[in-house]
Design a binder for these strands. Structure first.
Lengths: 123, 123
DNA sequence: CGATCAATTGAAGACTTCTTCAATTGTTCA
DNA sequence: TGAACAATTGAAGAAGTCTTCAATTGATCG
C-alpha cells in the first residue's frame, strides 16, 4: 500500500527481466521441478542458478522445499502460472507483430518509428 | 530470429521495468499525448523523461511525431495497448493476491515462502 | 536576426545487477 | 566419522542502468 502501484509493477517486470528467470518460470509452469532438473534444462552454473532462484524466492513468486538431499521448486500460486501463460501469449504475439512491422518498414525507406500520420524521412 | 525467445522476453520485461516507463505506457494507453502532458502527469525532469521515452522508442513500443514546436507520442500498435491492459489486469490481480497471501502468512508464524506441504517456521 | 520555448542528446558519477569463485550448509552412505 | 554430492551463500570485479547537468537542435515570435 505504501508503494505506488506503477512502482510495484516496475519492480515486478524488472524481476522478470532475466533470461534464466524467464526460463525457470516457464519450466515451473509445467509443474514442480528439482534444482537438478532446472540445472540440466537451463545449462547455467549451479551457483548462478541459485542466485536467480533466490531472486524469484525473495519476490515470492516461487516456493522451495527440501526433500532429502534435493530441493524442489514450484510456482507460488496459480496466479503466477496464469501470468506466465498470458505473458507468453502476449509476448509471442507482440514479437511476431514486430517482425511483420519490421518487414513493412524495410519495404519503405527504412525509417525508424514515426507516427503513422507524419511521413518525415531520416537524414 | 537470431535471439532465443526467452532472451527477447527478458529484454522486453526489462524494458518495462521502470516506474516512469510504466506510467508513460499507461498514459499512452488512453491515447496519444504531447510531451508536455507526459511531463505534467509524471512530474519528472524533462531530460529524464526524454531518456525514458528514448528507451521506449528504441524498443519500438512507442512512436513520436513532431507537430510544430511540440512532440506527440503514441503507442506503436494496438498490440501494445492490449499488452498494457493485460499486464495491468494480471499485475493488479497478482498484487492483491500477494497482499492476501501476506495477510494469511501474518496470521501464522510469519514465515517466508515454503512449499505448501512443508511447514517449517523461521527463527 | 536574436531570444525563447520544447524536446533531445551526451557524458559523468552513483547505484544496481550479473557472473564467477571460493567457502559453507545439509544430506547420504560406506 | 568422514568422503561425496546437492544446493546455497558471500564477496569481488565487470557490466549495465539511472539521474543529473550542460550543451544542442528545431520551431516560434518579436
Amino acid at each position: 500500500m505504501a508503494v505506488p502501484l506503477y512502482q510495484a509493477k516496475a519492480e515486478f517486470f524488472r524481476m522478470l527481466g532475466h533470461p534464466v528467470r524467464i526460463r525457470v518460470l516457464e519450466l515451473l509452469g509445467e509443474g514442480p521441478k528439482q534444482v537438478r532438473e532446472l540445472l540440466a534444462a537451463t545449462g547455467v552454473e549451479a551457483s548462478s542458478l541459485s542466485q536467480q532462484l533466490a531472486v524469484l524466492r525473495r519476490a515470492g513468486i516461487v516456493a522451495s522445499a527440501r526433500e532429502g538431499s534435493t530441493v524442489t521448486y514450484a510456482l507460488a500460486g496459480p496466479d503466477v502460472a496464469d501470468l506466465m501463460l498470458a505473458a507468453r501469449r502476449i509476448l509471442t504475439e507482440m514479437l511476431t507483430g514486430q517482425a511483420e512491422l519490421l518487414d513493412e518498414l524495410r519495404e519503405s525507406t527504412g525509417g525508424t518509428n514515426e507516427l503513422p500520420e507524419s511521413s518525415a524521412a531520416r537524414s
